[in-house]
Each structure stands twice: as C-alpha cells, then as structure tokens.
Design a protein around this nucleic acid. Structure first.
Lengths: 241, 241
DNA sequence: CGCTCTATTGAGACTTGTCAATTATGGTGG
DNA sequence: CCACCATAATTGACAAGTCTCAATAGAGCG
C-alpha cells in the first residue's frame, strides 16, 4: 500500500486521477514522520517549507485566543493534507496537533512547486483539495452560528461518517472517533459539560453510540435529518476539474 | 483603471505580480455584469462555468437551512473573487448574493484552466487567493465558537477596515460598511435585536461609529484589543509563493 | 492498587433569543 | 417640497440555551 492511496481515493471521488499524476505525487514525497498523541505538528506563524499528508491517526487544526480559549477549526482523517495551504500561505494562522498517534508524509514545497509547473491537472486536484477544506469550514461556520448544540454535534458526526466512508475506513454506520468530550467541545465551540449533556440526549434517542473511540450510528438518515445535514458541501461528484 | 487593479493590489500585498501575469489575467476576463442590490449571483448547487471578480459593491456568500435560518459565511469587497472556488468545485455549497448594487467581471473556467497550464506562478497566486478565503473562514469559526457577541462584531469590523485598506478603498479609521443590522446578524450568527444592543454598547464606549453605510473607528488598536483581533490570518506578508 | 484523566451530575448565573411594540429613516409619488 | 410607505433600528419584558463552578463517579494505566 502506497502512502498516497487514501489521498487518491479521496480525489478519485471527485475526478479521475491518472496513473502518471499519482506517480508524480509519489515522487514528491520525502519522509514519513510519526507523532505522539498531543504532539504539535505545526506551530502558528512559523515559516513552513513542507506540507504534510496524514496517513494514519487523527489531527486537529487549533486556534488559540490569548486568554486560553481554544477552537478546533478542522479535524483531519487519513488521506487529508493537514496543511497543504501552507504551500501558499507559508505561515499558518493556527497550530496543527496530533490528537492520536499519527503518521504524516512530508511534501516539500519545492516539489509541490514543480508539480504546479509540470502537472496542471494534478495542480488543480491539489487546489481542489484545499477548496474542499474551505467548504468544510463554511459548514462549521453555519454549525457554530445557526445550529443548536445537538444539531452541531450530530452534524459533525455525520460529516465524519461520510468522510471515513470516502477513504474506505468506515461507512455510514460506524467510523473511528478518537476524541475526548473536551476536544469535541473545542471543535463545536461548546463547554465539555454541555457536550456531555447533548451526547446523553442523542444517545437516549437512540441516534448514536460512542464508545472506545468508535462512533456507531444505527440510522444515518435519521441523524442527518435531526442535524440538518446535507452532504452537498462534501462535493462528492466525479467530474473533470 | 483596469478591472483587475484591485485584485492586483490584494495579491501584491502577498507577492510580486509580474506584468505578463497581469496581462494573462486581463486576457482571461470576458464581460462585466452589473447586479442590483439583493440579486442572486450564484445559486447553490448549480453547475458553474465561470468565476467572478468583484470590482464594485458588496457581495455575501449565504448558506440557508431548510427552516429559514441563514448564515453569511463570507463578505466580499472589491478586489475579491467571489467564487474562484467554483473553478474547482464546479457546484457551490452556498448562494452568492449582491448586498449592494455590484459589478462583477467574469472569468470563464476555460480561461482559468489555460492559466493553470501556462502560468504556474499566477496559478499559485490564484490558489493563494482561495486559501486566504480559508483563513478568513477559520477566523469566523473562532468568532462564532469562542468569542462573545461584542468581540465577534468588533472583530469583523477590524477585518473589514484592514481588508479595505489593502485595496486602497479605506484605512484603519474608516471604511464602507453598507450592511443592515439584520445582515450583520446573519454574518455573526446572532439575532438582529442582540446585534443592535451590542452596537450600542460599542458606540457608547466610543469604539466606533457606523452611519450611512460607513464605519468609523477612532482607535483601531483599542477596538482590536477589545475584540481579540490579530491580523495574522490576513497573511499580509510579501514573499515568494 | 492507586493515580490521573475523563465523564457525569447538580444548582444557579448569565448571555443571548423571542416576541411584540414603537420610533426612526429613506425613498417615492403627488 | 411634502406626505406616505416600507424598511430598518430601537426598546422592553421575559424565556431559553448554554455556561460556570463544584463535586462525584468511572476508566485507563503504570
């Protein structure tokens, strides 16, 4: 199994990824770096010269306020670039931390630059990947701004189920969810206490189970309906880009 | 004055934009389309074949929930591409509407595709432009999740002042802000009633004035401090991309 | 077998929302 | 130029959702 298989699955859900482009991607990778749970992968503001593809584990993008308030702005599963945007931004506006032990493959910006010079379609696929992040961000803005706490949590769970399904590491009944309630609270902009109460409510309604880092949802459509989840933002349409 | 001048100012704040690339951009534009206030520019889910650059007016990206709740996920000022991400996504996850009368220059995706084939550095600048949107989104997630209502409103105002300053249409004392309180509420995930109270609070503390669609902030640094505003997310660093 | 981190529970406070009415503002036709 | 109208802004009283603080219970780990 190649280090880019999961990324290819993710991209292949949106367009054809020719073999030569896969090869070019593989050639751009350098080493694979392991991280321990809680370890910092990227610190806000520091100049980056590589971007990193997650191949195993769970990664969070975290923004901190000076008084300690913290907000997770995205959670990454295997097959996601956790900081492809650093190729353009050079300095990130957030930290990147490993939630669980994780392995990340490095793609030096120099190699990515060469890809933009020789592989226009692959470039567009990578660009697409960052715009998918953007679509995810917008959905999170809606969740934080206009959804109730229960809808917000349920919506995030639906998102996870489908994203894991796309890369073949889960389906719409179950997927990994190795978070603490504190971390879930930081992702939703809630307190851990309230997240706990919301989870109990969702569990008592039989909408989900969540134990030992695994999420189980007996009826995806029901959870999706209750959470006002519409998968359109995942852009799961295979067409030329 | 060329239609891309404001965009060039925006990009030039982050990297050098050579004359030949400016020329390539100009060549990719087709017509300029005027919109009336309230008019829809792009409808969610419809397949797009052009992207649009805003040259005058104010534009909002709006997401709607089935029961009428509405969230603005981004506000665009002149010099912004309002839907460059549609070049990759093809179908947007949100509507795009004109808040005020506006003029938009069309860039057919076909021409953008050619740019990705012939102008790698310009391609990276356009890609950068969408990642700046992403950084803005993340800041909005933090505002919605972890900032108080007053901080949220103040933060948005600081963002506006600096963005207008970058394109030369304002400075950190004053800029256009042609929104209703209802629209501001939809951008912040608040109710109009609460936005109104927050505005009075900010006004009474002498932090800002806002009349006739124009925002005036006597002391930017004080508003920024009160709002926990850190301009880093705007990525205002000129370096090779 | 402790120890530490995580999850759970309860009581009360506070921010923000809801509903409904009133006032101000700006544009338009006469 | 004025009266009128629709929209936007403002106000008040009260409800609701979420937070805070503090304590207890549970679970994983050396």
């Amino acid at each position: 199994m190649s280090e880019i298989d999961l990324l290819v699955r993710k991209l292949a859900a949106r367009d054809v990824v020719p073999e030569d482009e896969q090869q070019a991607l593989r050639a751009a990778a350098t080493e694979t770096v392991p991280y321990a749970a809680g370890e910092e992968v990227v610190r806000e503001g520091e100049r980056q010269t590589v971007s990193r593809l997650l191949v195993s584990g769970l990664i969070a993008r975290v923004k901190l306020l000076d008084d300690g308030r913290r907000q997770i702005t995205e959670l990454h599963i295997p097959g996601d670039f956790v900081d492809l945007h650093s190729f353009l931004l050079k300095r990130l506006d957030h930290d990147v931390i490993a939630v669980t032990p994780a392995r990340l493959v490095s793609y030096p910006h120099e190699g990515l630059r060469k890809i933009t010079e020789q592989w226009p379609h692959l470039t567009r696929l990578l660009w697409l990947s960052t715009t998918l992040d953007g679509a995810g961000h917008r959905e999170w803005i809606v969740s934080a701004g206009r959804r109730t706490a229960a809808e917000h949590v349920g919506h995030l769970f639906c998102e996870f189920l489908l994203r894991y399904e796309v890369v073949g590491l889960g389906d719409r009944r179950r997927c990994p969810l190795p978070l603490t309630q504190q971390q879930l609270a930081d992702a939703c902009g809630l307190t851990p206490v309230h997240v706990n109460r919301v989870l109990q409510e969702l569990r008592h309604e039989g909408l989900l189970e969540w134990r030992a880092g695994e999420l189980t949802v007996p009826d995806f459509d029901r959870l999706a309906q209750v959470s006002r989840f519409d998968p359109a933002f995942l852009n799961l349409i295979r067409e030329p880009r």
